[in-house]
Computed example of a mutant assay.
Amino acid sequence: MTPFGPGLWLVDGPAVTGAAGFRFPTRMAVIRLPDGGGLWVWSPVALSQEIRAAVDALGQVRHLIAPNSLHYTFLGEWAAAYPDARVHAAPDLTSQVAGTVIHATLGDEPAPAWAGTVDQVIVRGNRITTEVVFFHRETATVLVTDLVQQIPQGWYRGWRALVARLDLMTAPVPSVPRKFRMATRDKTAARNSVRRILEWPTDCLVMAHGTPMRTGGNAALQNAFGWLIR
Rank of each mutant, 00 (worst) to 15 (best):
G125S: 13
G125M: 15
G125Q: 14
N126W: 06
N126I: 09
N126K: 12
N126T: 11
N126P: 12
R127K: 13
R127I: 12
R127G: 12
R127L: 15
R127D: 15
I128S: 10
I128C: 11
I128Q: 11
I128H: 11
I128K: 11
I128L: 15
T129A: 15
T129P: 13
T130K: 05
T130S: 15
T130H: 07
T130R: 13
T130Y: 00
E131G: 15
E131H: 14
E131R: 11
E131M: 15
E131F: 14
V132W: 10
V132G: 12
V132F: 12
V133R: 07
V133Y: 06
F134N: 10
F134V: 11
F135T: 12
F135N: 12
F135A: 12
H136F: 07
H136V: 15
H136G: 06
R137D: 09
R137V: 06
R137F: 10
R137E: 09
E138Q: 13
E138M: 10
E138R: 13
E138L: 12
T139R: 03
T139L: 02
T139A: 06
T139K: 01
A140N: 07
T141G: 01
T141Q: 06
T141D: 04
T141K: 04
V142F: 03
V142N: 03
V142R: 00
L143I: 10
L143C: 08
L143D: 04
L143F: 15
V144G: 01
V144H: 01
V144Y: 00
T145Q: 02
T145E: 02
T145V: 06
D146Q: 04
D146W: 03
D146P: 04
L147C: 02
L147Y: 10
L147Q: 06
V148H: 10
V148Q: 04
Q149W: 00
Q149E: 13
Q149S: 10
Q149D: 07
Q149G: 01
Q149F: 00
Q150M: 07
Q150I: 03
I151H: 03
I151P: 02
I151S: 05
P152Y: 08
P152V: 01
P152T: 07
Q153Y: 08
Q153L: 09
Q153W: 09
Q153M: 08
Q153G: 08
Q153I: 04
G154I: 08
G154L: 04
G154M: 10
W155V: 03
W155E: 03
W155A: 00
Y156V: 06
Y156S: 05
Y156R: 01
Y156T: 09
Y156F: 14
R157N: 08
R157P: 08
R157T: 13
G158L: 05
G158F: 12
G158H: 07
W159T: 07
W159A: 11
W159D: 02
W159Y: 06
W159N: 00
R160H: 12
R160Y: 05
R160G: 03
R160L: 08
A161V: 04
A161S: 07
A161K: 04
L162S: 02
L162W: 09
L162P: 00
V163G: 00
V163A: 13
V163E: 01
A164G: 02
A164W: 02
R165M: 11
R165L: 11
